[in-house]
């Protein structure tokens, strides 16, 4: 079981709710992913359109936990204010804290992130910081009060997978008891399985599912991959070697030359 800020979860796949072709597809994808946590955001609402109200009704019907994000925030103040607004609307202390530092890669501004995390943790928020694999930043976030970290695999929406295997492996090894969730950049289920085999606790996927040809089937495929990767990690994978080792016994082999 995965424990995040005291919440016990069976599923290790978190799902984003953006970029689906319709609310019905989103609903089916959430079911197929067997996810228990979905990410949501806050955006301007035109009084007459009530789009947000419809979306919120849909999410509540799903019966899953929500993890509000601060997507699009570029400053500490924006992120902190957005977190306050999200806490009121979604009635949860959870916040996926994003402070974007670079628009081409959507790389987090880790300095602003650490500062915003310090403020929000001090105010009782349970912060899920979207960060890089940098160990020093991770330490700073934990010192600020974060008890979960969300390192990126690759830039948001890029589908590149795990860009820095060595760095992510080092992060896992350095913080063996901190829940680490790979957030952003996964493209296919094998990326998710790989993350789990490396020992990560969970993955968060959005674009890879929502923009797939068949989002519902892809959600199911990610769910299987996460389960397989987690089971494989627990089963103790063999160490890679540079040369071949016969798997069939050599003793008893016939001399036929």
């Amino acid at each position: 079981m995965l424990e995040l800020y005291g919440a016990t979860l069976r599923s290790r796949l978190l799902l984003g709710t953006a970029r689906y072709s319709s609310p019905a597809v989103l609903k089916e994808a959430v079911a197929a992913a067997r996810t228990e946590v979905v990410t949501v955001s806050l955006r301007r609402e035109a009084g007459a359109e009530r789009a947000g109200q419809g979306f919120w009704s849909l999410i509540r019907e799903l019966g899953v936990r929500v993890l509000p994000n601060t997507a699009g925030c570029h400053s500490v103040k924006e992120a902190v204010t957005t977190a306050h607004m999200a806490r009121e609307v979604f009635a949860t202390p959870w916040v996926k804290l994003e402070v974007i530092g670079e628009d081409d890669t959507l790389q987090p501004d880790v300095f602003g992130l650490a500062e915003a995390a310090r403020i929000l943790c001090g105010e009782g928020f349970e912060v899920f910081p979207y960060t890089t694999e940098d160990l020093v930043v991770a330490e700073r976030l934990l010192t600020a009060g974060c008890r979960v970290l969300m390192p990126w695999g690759a830039p948001i929406g890029s589908g590149r997978g795990l860009n820095n295997l060595f760095g992510l492996g080092a992060l896992r090894a350095h913080f063996p008891h901190v829940p680490l969730i790979i957030d952003a950049g996964l493209g296919v289920p094998s990326h998710a399985a790989h993350a789990m085999e490396l020992g990560f606790d969970a993955v968060l996927v959005n674009t890879a599912v929502a923009q797939a040809g068949d989002p519902v089937a892809m959600a199911a495929a990610f769910a299987q991959a996460v389960e397989a990767g987690y089971a494989a990690r627990a089963a103790g994978p063999i160490e890679p070697k540079d040369f071949g080792t016969p798997s069939t016994p050599v003793i008893g082999q016939a001399f036929l030359g």
Partner: peptide
């Protein structure tokens, strides 16, 4: 004045 509502997010 900013008026924000629940919306899809990643």
């Amino acid at each position: 004045v900013e008026v924000l509502a629940p919306m899809q997010g990643g």
